[in-house]
Design a protein around this nucleic acid. Structure first.
Lengths: 138, 138
DNA sequence: CTGCATGCAAACCGTTTGCATCCCC
DNA sequence: GGGGATGCAAACGGTTTGCATGCAG
């Protein structure tokens, strides 16, 4: 997770990093692409994918492999957990103290070299919940 | 999670269910397809996808939305956790007592209606670990 | 007879990759 | 001038879907 090797901070990479740090959501690669494109209209989608991947490998950002078909990215790299709306797919942080000791338990009860864990809650977000209620009362 | 509506148990569905129950791994849709095809050579991949989805909606099986690009399916539907090999993608069960109370905590600290959670460990499985060591000592 | 289920193939979507060009060192 | 980075477009892998046919109730 620590930097493997210093990577050159090209304008594209810098903008990707800045835009990612700017939001508290956990955008997909495509959403990052849209954000970045406003500042660098000629950037290619491939470049965004390549650099997100690269920066995740370097520990500069976090690649969230959550449920749903798309990967999401996070500028906050310390251990924290997420909740995903099963309705709209939105992903939010969950304020829950990290439980790094779980890794030890998992290590004891398996023949894996455990490197980490992630907890993903699922639920209905406030927005989708309201929409549902409206649909029912109609 | 409880059965929404009884679904008809066609031969295809029965075979899918049986084959899924037979293995302790967590096969992808394609792996299920391969298993089922040995008994029903003319079954279509679309049918497998449609029925896995349907049976998951009915709570008859579990759809695992773990990291990696593919969904996996599990005949064991009670709450339990998993570990995924970051090297080969294999998914195993982790013997760790379920912590259903986490849902309450998440509920308290968010504006979601929490419906559940899943813990996914990541690590290197025994097979991949050995392969790595061999590669180094060579 | 009607409707759901199937097999098949084409479409789809997110992601990756090959390649020619560009730019920094 | 050389090696990595980029833009672009084509390829890819997993999944979904439309449609004609089949079969159970």
């Amino acid at each position: 997770m620590q930097p493997q090797s210093e990577i050159r901070l090209t304008p594209q990479r810098q903008v990707i990093l800045e835009e990612l740090a700017k939001v508290k959501t956990h955008p997909t690669a495509n959403e990052v692409y849209d954000m970045v494109r406003k500042r660098l209209p000629r950037i290619g989608l491939g470049t965004v994918y390549r650099n997100l991947e690269l920066m995740a490998d370097n520990g500069m950002i976090l690649k969230l492999e959550v449920g749903g078909s798309q990967k999401r990215f996070d500028a906050i790299t310390n251990l924290h957990y997420h909740i995903r709306c099963t309705c709209c797919g939105k992903v939010d942080d969950i304020e829950l103290t990290a439980m790094p000791h779980l890794d030890q338990l998992a290590s004891d009860s398996s023949d894996y070299q455990v490197v980490g864990h992630h907890i993903e809650f699922s639920g209905i977000c406030a927005t989708c919940g309201e929409a549902q209620e409206k649909a029912i009362t109609n």
